[in-house]
Design a protein around this nucleic acid. Structure first.
Lengths: 218, 218
DNA sequence: GTCTATACCCAGATAGAC
DNA sequence: GTCTATCTGGGTATAGAC
């Protein structure tokens, strides 16, 4: 064996290599989002990224490994934004509003990531079940505990905290995943910032008032 | 041309043939739901349906045609249930509660159909864009008009009706499409009736109260 | 209507020259 | 690191006997 042993992964990701990988990952995310894992060919991804299929396989030795990296990148972003509830000092209603608007912001800025994620979950999450169990669930548990403490303190209605989060996830991600359907219903090709603004206003109003975090204003 | 011209479709769907087709369609729906269009082979569907791939191609001459039929069946069910808001005589709050629980019921009883539908929308709905525009949107428009009349009559808060429906669709379908994730969060393999009951109670509470259809109860 | 055999194509991956 | 060439498997679909 050479003295330059390859560790787990990182050694010196040369700037050139990093740039190529980024281009490939971006192309792959978009392609996987629209066509699903089995619907895209390496050829198509490579073309979009501006290199040959064979050359791309130099950077990512298999389709699997490429997909895996795409999924991981998205999930890391997810979990990072998931901790929105953890900010000290804010009132419960501010925290929940920030959480909702933060989730919506991800849908607006990373719709393709959201779609890849959705495809993966619908398929039973074979690639990230373990990862979710280890990283996403602990975060969720602490968020749920926080909501339970609000309920115990009489700050909000005694709703199921789990279902509160399911609803927030679903109703924010839908603006990314189902944007085609929503666009059709709104009579436009793509959703603009105004649409997301109105979506946020609606969700914040209904969820805060609906959980009793904001008093009914007659 | 023979005198027995083949019309658009139906002539005499013999009972035997109808039964075979039903078996095939059921197998296909399940397979497409879990693996997506490109993720399933005809071989796999045929095996699940209990016949040979070649024999299945006798009933459905191509994969495309099979998929198309699966999608159509689901969408018809969707639109039928979409008219829940149209029942005369009920109060707005009863109508909306029925609508929410009806949608949830579809997620519980036809999760695979919901998943196929979700996959299709995420991919830009290439197979059913036209169909949705002609059948789903008119129904939605009339539902929206109804909600607007409630608002005009001062029966509920002046929220965006469009986003109300987007939220109801997303938050009910998530129990089918993302059942894997929700199951993980709830610590169980599959969702049972109690889970759907609690989901319904949560959604009805939050949405009715959040839109001002039910007064805040202190 | 159901079977066997097979044509045909496309996509993932590898080999090896440069 | 990038290219040309190629192997290989799997998947849709058809042909034709029974």
């Amino acid at each position: 064996m050479s003295e330059h042993q390859h560790r787990a992964k990182p050694r010196k990701p040369s700037p050139a290599r990093a740039a190529q990988e980024a281009k490939i990952l971006a192309a792959a995310e978009e392609a996987f989002a629209h066509l699903g894992y089995n619907g895209v060919s390496l050829e198509a991804i490579a073309e979009r990224a501006g290199l040959s299929k064979q050359n791309m396989l130099y950077y990512f030795p298999s389709k699997e490994s490429l997909y895996h990296q795409v999924i991981r990148n998205i999930l890391d972003l997810w979990i990072e934004k998931m901790a929105l509830l953890e900010q000290e000092g804010d009132s419960p209603r501010d925290m929940l509003e920030n959480y909702i608007r933060g989730k919506l912001e991800i849908s607006r800025t990373r719709p393709n990531g959201s779609k890849v994620f959705a495809n993966e979950i619908i398929s039973g999450a074979p690639h990230l079940q373990e990862y979710m169990r280890n990283n996403l669930l602990p975060q969720l548990d602490s968020d749920i505990a926080l909501v339970k403490s609000w309920i115990a303190d009489g700050l909000m209605d005694p709703v199921d905290p789990e279902h509160l989060f399911f609803t927030i996830w679903a109703s924010t991600q839908t603006y990314a995943d189902f944007s085609t359907q929503i666009g059709m219903a709104l009579g436009k090709e793509t959703l603009d910032e105004g649409d997301f603004q109105r979506a946020g206003d609606f969700l914040v109003h209904v969820i805060l008032k609906g959980t009793g975090l904001v008093e009914a204003t007659p």
